[in-house]
Design a protein around this nucleic acid. Structure first.
Lengths: 179, 179
DNA sequence: AAGTTTTGTAAGTGATTACTCACTTTCATT
DNA sequence: AATGAAAGTGAGTAATCACTTACAAAACTT
């Protein structure tokens, strides 16, 4: 990975997040990255290849976060860490995750039967076990709800990232576990 | 609203939902609708105007559903009806609502400070009152959570609309209210 | 230092696309 | 039936875009 290669990636990420994939011309990416347009195609074959390279990074980052959650021994800690995840992600790399979420609704990635990553599945399993250990009657369903809350919370964070909102909402969400 | 005008609208809706706004050429809309391409611009000025016309329909449909919820007298019924809303919407007009949800992530509608519709605000208020009447300590926060669940649930419905999944999940969600 | 591979550039190019325009047809009103 | 407005057509067109290609510079290998 050369210096310019990485420059192209971070520039494309920023522009895709700002303007969307389809409305960001490769010429603009090249211009903002300060490289020739041809270089993009030399390194990433085509525009889709560029997007694929960006998406590939997301798997790594999610794995790292999943590992962190799995290492917590207390189930309640795991649940709370899961709830904190969106806040954490958006604070650290807002545009990157905005792009990830918006991708879920794009045709290209919508139809290729969405398969959760191994890391994701491991967290699901750990949370299910956790809910069971805590005495919840339907642990699988509880995890589903938790995942929905995660989705919805991320959505809210993406649209209105006011700090007070985040703090009070997160605190209230946590207060629901255990119940 | 002439016959062809409506044909253009429903065709554009379908294609935008299937392929996305940016990747659907007006020439294809015209072809599939069986009209000349020029007619699109005669009636809707430009491609954005076409999208605006589609979005305008969503406000009406949401209002109708909001009214239905508001007419329920029992707060629990209101909450349950709210939870049923995504299922209802997706069953009736799947592609229309898929498009609506994907729009939330598109630049054009993302930045223009998202303002909830009057109907939406009225439902929020009614739900808040409902939670208070049911003795919940923090009704505003409860409504926030309910809205997150709605978002997350819609998301799940959009990605994997298996009937069993829908039924059991909806039942479990409802069982959480009242608690 | 010579040779080879990799990285990088600049100037295209063909295809696509949103939109226009000159024109015709349909329709409502008198 | 005449007229004016609205609906509808279809053949452009200028601009944009993803991608190619011929070539040069840099870096790595021996």
């Amino acid at each position: 990975m050369t210096e310019k290669q990485e420059l192209i990636l971070v520039t494309a990420l920023r522009l895709f997040a700002e303007k969307g994939f389809d409305t960001t011309p490769t010429s603009l990416i090249a211009k903002e990255a300060g490289v020739s347009e041809g270089l993009i195609f030399r390194h990433f074959t085509n525009k889709d290849g560029l997007m694929d390279a960006i998406v590939a990074m997301s798997e790594e980052r999610l794995s790292a976060n999943a590992e962190r959650i799995l290492q917590l021994s207390n189930p309640i800690d795991q649940i709370h860490a899961t709830l904190e995840l969106p806040v954490k992600l958006f604070q650290e790399e807002r545009e990157f995750w905005m792009l990830q979420f918006s991708l879920k609704w794009q045709k290209k990635y919508k139809n290729q039967t969405y398969t959760p990553s191994p890391a994701h599945l491991k967290v699901i399993q750990a949370l299910t076990d956790g809910f069971r250990a805590l005495g919840y009657a339907q642990p699988e369903q509880e995890v589903k709800i938790l995942m929905m809350l995660l989705d919805g919370f991320s959505h809210q964070l993406a649209l209105s990232p006011s700090p007070e909102y985040i703090e009070t909402t997160l605190a209230f969400l946590k207060s629901k576990y255990p119940n």
